[in-house]
Structures are given as C-alpha cells and as structure tokens.
Design a protein around this nucleic acid. Structure first.
Length: 482
RNA sequence: GGAGCGUUCGUCUAGUGGUUAGGACGCUGCCCUCUCACGGCGGUGGCAGGGGUUCGAGUCCCCUACGCUCUACCA
C-alpha cells in the first residue's frame, strides 16, 4: 500500500511555523516513501473563514518548497479538497451513524449548554455534555428533525471500557471511555466539526498516516471510536511535538516571529528555514546539520521524531541561513536584494547604477546572515556615508591620518583601478611612508563606508569607482578634520 | 478540577544497561587576517528530584516536581 499523508490546515490566519513544520514532516515522509502528499483545506468554521489566509497559506507553502500531489490548484482523484464543498458527504455519514444508533440528534440549546457548563464549573464537576438527548426515542428524534427543529448530531460514546491506540513515536496511549463525552459531529449550520470531517475525509482520501500536532492526542480516542462506528480501519497516528518560543511558551510575533511570511520578510532563505525546521524535533541520527533537500528526504523517518517539544532558536536559524547565503549564487539573490533596497528608498540609485547591485551582493553575501543584512550593511554602495562610526573614528582617524590620506589620494588618481593594483599601491605607499598597512587601510574604509568593518578593502574600492572613492576621502577630510 | 503528553549542556540534539555522556548554535580563549564575517584549534556547560530493579542505569519500573496540551456547535 502506498503511503498517503496530508496537511490539513484551517485557513484562519497566517501559516505558523508549527504548522509549517507539520506540513514539512508530512512532505518529507511522503517523498521518502514514494507516497503522496495532499493538501486539504479544513474550512468548516464559517465564522473564522478568511480569504486572504488561504491565499497566503498556499503562497507560503510554495515558498518553502512544499509541493502537493493532490489538493487546491492541482486537483486529484478525491476532489474537492475544500471541506466546505463536501458537506453532503458528511451529512450522509452522520445520517448513517444515526441510523446505526452510533450517533444521535441533540436538541439542546446553546443556552442550556452554557448553563450546564456554568453549573459544572461552580460545583467543580468535570465539564462535558450531560447526554441529555442521548436517549431521546429515535422516532421522536426523527419527527422533531423532520419538523425542522434545530439540532446537532453527537457521537454515542461508550460509557465504559477503554479506547487504546498506538502513536508511532509514543507507543500505546489509553483513554477510559467514561472521560470522553459525546462530541458534536454535525453542527446546527449543517457543517461538520473537525472530528467528523477529518475522519470521513482521511478515510475517503485513503490517508495511511496521520501526522499532526500533539494537541490532537486527546481527540484521537474519539476519532478511533468514530472509525470503529463506521467500521473503518484507522490510519497510523503520529503526533508531532509543538514548537515553543525561545523562553518557553507559545511562539508569537512578540516572542520571535511566528509565521513563515515573517521569516521570508526578515531575509531568510526558504531552504534554510526548511532545513532548520526539519531539525526541530527530528535528527538524522548522526551529526549532520546542514542538509540538502535530498539528504533530508533520504534520511527521514518518523521513528526518529522526538516526543519532546522544542524551542525555536532564531540565533541558530541565523547561523544556518548564513551558511546557505555563502552557497547561494549571487544571481539568485539579486531580485530579493533589489526588492529590499527599493523598500529602503534606493530605487533611483538602483536605476542610475544597475551594475552596482551585483558587486554589492557579491561582496557582502558571504559575511551576512540574512538578506536584509546584505542590504543594510552595504548602503554605502549607493550613497556617500553621512555619518562615521564614532568608535572607528577614535581608533583609526589619528592626527597624522589626514596628511597620509592626501598623499594617498594623489596616488589614487593614476593607479590602475583593480584590486591587485590598488593593493600594490597601498603596499608601496606604506613602505615609503614607513607606516603599517593598517594605518592606511582603516582610514580609507572609514572614509569610503563610514564603517569599521566590511568587505576586503581593495575589492570594495574596485567596486566603487575611482571618482567616488577620491570624493569620499576628500569629504572625510573635511568632516573629520584635516 | 480531570485526563493526556513530556523532562540529556542556556538552546537544538546523539545516546536504547557498561561512554572520559558525543555533536551543533551561543558565549569565550587562541590562530588566520586590512576590519568584519568565514575557517581551524581549545574552553565553558547537561542526564529535574527521590525511590526501586540490576553486579552495573541518562538508558527499565514507581513516585514527586515542573512544563505543555486538551477538557467548544475552533481547528
């Protein structure tokens, strides 16, 4: 039997990194096993439906490289892949359960339910439906339903015994049936709850393995009961640990970014995030950290997923991203860097010097951790420095510096403008003046970039042109004294 | 309140009865070097606590503590 797994998000907000990781594990497993990865949209909550969310979700999954074999946009043999378009199917199955006596109509009003819950809370009773309608006579139930009385459909959960299932990474998990109440299958609006839709669809779409967040563990016994009520064989369950914020607790915008889109905007590469997420809660079993997509797929196995929730350490993500930036060809970074530069207000400069972009990226990408850092630490490629780093001035711009800079400028007028010649020029000049190489280099970098750090000086000078360099040195002489 | 899940350096993890408890990020020392970053070499730092089982326990069992999740006509 070929493996079929699915990612079944609810389009109510952005794609959270936790959700992204669930999707990613599903994807890796499908690819590893030569199976199918489906995307199914669980839009059964009309009140929370959000059109933008669906669009962003699809965009973010694609950005991460998670392509699906069946689902929205690509179709497939089990269409439609939107639960809101499968209402008849759920209704039919709910009716089937009612006919079998495995489910029943509940006519309780939300007022009664609220009051019930309040009373339970007050008396410190365990909350849960009191099964008020469980034993309504079937004929009466049919009559009231036919008369149009508002109702939900609930599962008739066994009141004794226990339900056991196996979680692939945790082993057997056991629930006493009496702690489970009669959950709602079909809501008054005719939409199914997650529980019904999920079980019906997973069966209909022949899902073999359910890989989902571990917040679903407590619902799983009810799902198993549902499979049993239908007479179906449940899939293999594998519950994934959650991702925590750095200090513990929920991941949110405040505590590090939470959505995939945030990370894209912050200048991370999709594969870096992919790789990082794959290593959160899973490891190949050896010391590898930086892994290609193919290596990830080949090494992946569900058994190696950790049961423990993991904290999202953005510092480590930055490191990984920096590693990938080194491997990424200059050309494939151009568009994104251009986008950010425009965002920073450099559209005109970009247009005036189209060839500068490549130089900028190639000199800075290997020393940056994020794409936005490439931009923000290299703005001097586009404009004269308007400030000079104070510490650097104190350290490198000494009393004798201006005179040396003037001598240097004279040389720069005529030297061949490439990094090798420039370096030779600096070497010769320091020798003549009897000073250290660094005595000329640091002030030059400061004058040209305003900073104390950056690319190798001669590569930088070559990238900027002769006139620009000389002008900036003169400018520094004026502003810093000389 | 109840139920469930979890607990190896600060963080991500390796480890399935016998290891000097290994690696990575971070921090840090040195080297490389025109700076920064990269890279190389070293250092820092951990089995939540308590009971068992065993010749021997991070590894198996129990208890406690702590954390998280669920306890909706949300997923």
């Amino acid at each position: 039997m070929t493996v079929r797994v699915r990612f079944a998000p609810s389009p109510t907000g952005y794609l959270h990194v936790g959700g992204a990781r669930s999707a990613l594990f599903n994807w890796l497993f499908a690819r590893k096993m030569g199976g199918k990865f489906l995307l199914r949209i669980e839009d059964t909550d009309q009140s929370r439906y959000n059109e933008t969310a669906l669009h962003d979700l699809i965009r973010d999954l694609k950005w991460l490289g998670l392509n699906w074999d069946e689902g929205p946009e690509v179709g497939g043999p089990h269409e439609p892949y939107y639960q809101s378009q499968r209402l008849d199917l759920y209704k039919r199955h709910a009716d089937e359960l009612i006919a079998k006596g495995s489910a029943y109509r509940c006519f309780c009003t939300s007022e009664r339910l609220d009051a019930l819950r309040a009373r339970q809370e007050e008396n410190k009773m365990p909350p849960g439906y009191d099964r008020h309608c469980r034993d309504v006579d079937p004929e009466e139930s049919n009559r009231r339903a036919a008369a149009g009385e508002v109702h939900v459909v609930r599962l008739r959960t066994p009141m004794s015994g226990k339900t056991v299932f196996t979680d692939l990474i945790r082993g057997e998990i056991e629930y006493q049936n009496h702690v489970l109440d009669d959950l709602v299958l079909l809501k008054t609006d005719g939409f199914p709850t997650y529980h019904l839709a999920n079980v019906v669809d997973d069966h209909d779409m022949q899902i073999t393995h359910v890989l989902r967040g571990d917040e679903w563990i407590p619902s799983t016994p009810r799902h198993v009961l549902l499979y049993q009520a239908f007479g179906w064989t449940p899939p293999v369950f594998c519950h994934l640990p959650v991702i925590l914020a750095p200090g513990g607790g929920k991941l949110s915008k405040r505590k590090g970014a939470a959505s995939v889109g945030d990370f894209r905007d912050k200048g991370y590469l999709p594969h870096a995030l992919f790789n990082f997420l794959a290593l959160l809660g899973w490891s190949p079993g050896d010391d590898r950290e930086k892994m290609t997509l193919q290596e990830l797929v080949e090494s992946f196995s569900l058994e190696r997923i950790m049961p423990k929730s993991a904290a999202f350490d953005e510092i480590k993500l930055e490191w990984l991203n920096g590693q990938y930036l080194i491997d990424t060809p200059v050309d494939s970074l151009l568009d994104e860097v251009r986008r950010i530069l425009e965002l920073r207000g450099y559209a005109a400069e970009l247009a005036a010097q189209p060839s500068m972009l490549r130089k900028h990226v190639s000199l800075l990408k290997d020393r940056s951790k994020r794409i936005d850092e490439i931009v923000d630490t290299g703005l001097y490629f586009w404009r004269d420095p308007d400030t000079y780093d104070e510490k650097a001035v104190a350290k490198y711009w000494k009393a004798e510096t201006p005179e040396r800079m003037r001598v240097l400028c004279a040389q720069l007028q005529t030297v061949t403008w490439d990094h090798a010649s420039l370096e030779a020029c600096y070497r010769a000049l320091t020798e003549t003046l009897g000073i250290k190489f660094a005595d000329l280099i640091h002030p030059t970098r400061l004058a040209v970039s305003g900073l104390s750090y950056g690319p190798g000086l001669f590569e930088l000078l070559e990238a900027l042109d002769r006139k620009m360099v000389i002008d900036r040195i003169h400018r520094a002489l004026e502003r810093l004294g000389g």
